[in-house]
Design a protein around this nucleic acid. Structure first.
Lengths: 367, 367
DNA sequence: GGACGTGTTGAATCGCCCA
DNA sequence: ATGGGCGATTCAACACGTC
């Protein structure tokens, strides 16, 4: 640290994208010169075969050479190497973010611990619009995981607690963040109109990462720069960045993109209002939480129809089974039905609409 | 497998809690005898009194002069051992769930992959009422992570897709679950009125785990049984369980707790019929049974294409002949097609999907 | 020019049975 | 073991064209 490091630092080109392999370039940077590292490494997806949607259209999967590894061992070695190089350039009080999915994040997390990084949080990016599970064979893979670590247990790292609280309607920011995936106008396209990069991250995600863990003027390094979301948001928020990317095409795209970004006039005014989320309460929640016993009989208006509740939140009437909405529609011969207002239960002699129970759960969930 | 395994199985006491160390007890069970394992392993090393160093010397948590590397090594070895024993007792088509936090889950996940378990999902339990971060130095740690794995890539594991969809108001269940932590009347207290166990899991969480990945009658093993939430919910939902717990006090508490649980009256209430398990009805059956006359014209959507039914259950269009699926695919130029939902017929002026006829046959067959 | 309907798309480890 | 046939399967957001 100190003078010599600052002198060296001055020689490093900031706010540009360096073309090349990230370990090599990181090793060419002065040690302990970077405040925060954000890394979006290859996920090692191990995809095989093709996947089609129910309408027979083909899913455009990640099929790039940079995501292909021969084995977990090879992926671990790759990961170890870049984490080690990252550690060298990171300041003692710096922090590092890595994003990944279940394919790779457990390996990354274990290696971070082995390298004496100190875990501060794991943060779940909940996607508001994930790709569905087309075959119905698993749960919809609706999130990605970010691990946030300090260089050591004793690091005096930056965490802008008040900014995060302000961003979250004056409630502490939680470790699960609901944000949309990157599409629409933000998604960069190539000359053919296809997506320029298969895994471009949304700016809203980087916005929260950078606001939470850096100060204005801090240097943010991204060793897998891609189309440069980290650089674009860093510039916008008055931070500096060092981008490393080994694909010349991506370097070109990112450079152009960032040149069009304007730094915000007053960073202190930055705030993306966050509406407090009104959680959706599915009917099944009432059963899981014991507010309604499986086997309970529900009635339609005037007790014309009845159906029984099952443990999975489906209803069963004489002929039909399905959700409260579906069975409600079917007994009436209607095309649709709001089951919440249609079905009632006996509660101490009185008919109670099941929507009352939902309001009860919602009150508990938002308190 | 087969007879000998069944004989052995008969000797294993089910629906009871076994007192002892989980690896030892799992190794005493017959191999490939368990459908699902749910594990909530300790991650506070102080709790894991049995930890040994790789050289088999005891880790002394009180005089902990061992460094961090040793501690991760010890935790990995502990984890490796129980995952290995779990793998032996798990059926080929069985699945395993592990729950943990950022302290341990990355080590567990990496070891699962190293042991050739095949990841199906990681599932985020979002706590609706997490403990706040009192010092305001990090994000509120508001979730825990569950990893769901099959024994191998080729396992034919159980996933009750329709049940999960029903539970979630007819939308695919996502990988992030919002559920409250265990407190109130559900939280077991000791004689002093303190919580009986530090990490008692909510029954709602196990309800969803068990409904999603087991059939009624399946055997669920929990090697870190604690106060027996897994057993309580398994019994309620008509599943069997094998509990293993090394603390005599917990065994007592869990046993008493489960004895007070009642199984739901009707096992049929427990799970809606999964479409994939319905009997297969060949298209030709409709003709044989007189529900469809040979020579009838069927139409694709918007009557864009048509084809005629022949007596042997094949279709013939202008150019193609073959099964309802093949002809459906060929007229569209698609690689595949579900003929049951593609083809429609005129019935008294209305378009009727031929799948309706299949449902009629199914109803007749089950009555 | 808004309402509505149609079409496209996104880091995805996405069948099973039987001959 | 392996290949072919049966037949199961999608949510939210955005773009675009029509009325």
């Amino acid at each position: 640290m100190g003078d010599s490091s600052q002198e060296e630092s001055a020689l490093v080109k900031k706010n540009v994208v360096h073309l090349g392999e990230c370990v090599e370039i990181m090793n060419s940077l002065p040690e302990k010169s970077v405040d925060v590292i954000f890394a979006d490494p290859p996920y090692n997806l191990q995809l095989a075969g093709e996947l089609t949607r129910p309408d027979n259209s083909k899913v455009d999967a990640v099929n790039n050479d940079w995501d292909k590894f021969d084995s977990f061992r090879a992926y671990d070695e790759f990961t170890w190497n870049w984490l080690k190089a990252a550690r060298r350039v990171l300041k003692e009080n710096g922090t590092l973010w890595v994003i990944g999915s279940y394919h790779n994040i457990y390996r990354v997390g274990a290696l971070l611990q082995n390298l004496d990084y100190w875990m501060l949080n794991d943060v779940i990016w909940r996607k508001s619009n994930p790709m569905p599970n087309f075959r119905g064979r698993r749960f919809t893979n609706a999130h990605e995981t970010m691990i946030w670590v300090a260089k050591s247990k004793t690091s005096k790292y930056t965490f802008n607690y008040e900014s995060m609280k302000a961003l979250n309607d004056d409630i502490q920011m939680r470790s699960d963040w609901l944000l949309p995936i990157c599409n629409g106008g933000e998604r960069l396209k190539n000359s053919e109109g296809d997506k320029a990069h298969p895994t471009q991250k949304p700016e809203s995600l980087l916005h929260r990462v950078i606001l939470s863990s850096t100060k204005p003027g801090d240097v943010i390094l991204d060793p897998f720069f891609g189309t440069g979301t980290t650089g674009a948001v860093a510039k916008k928020l008055g931070r500096q960045f060092i981008g490393i990317e080994q694909d010349q095409e991506y370097v070109k795209i990112a450079t152009k993109r960032i040149s069009q970004v304007k730094q915000l006039d007053d960073i202190n005014l930055v705030s993306i209002e966050q509406k407090r989320e009104q959680p959706r309460i599915p009917f099944g929640t009432l059963i899981e939480r014991g507010l309604l016993e499986p086997g309970t009989t529900l009635y339609g208006p005037k007790k014309k129809y009845s159906a029984k509740v099952r443990a999975d939140g489906s209803l069963i009437s004489n002929e039909f089974q399905g959700s409260i909405h579906k069975v409600g529609a079917m007994v009436q011969g209607a095309s649709a039905c709001n089951g919440w207002t249609y079905w009632h239960m006996d509660a101490e002699g009185r008919e109670v609409c099941i929507d009352v129970l939902r309001q009860q759960v919602r009150a508990e969930m938002t308190n």
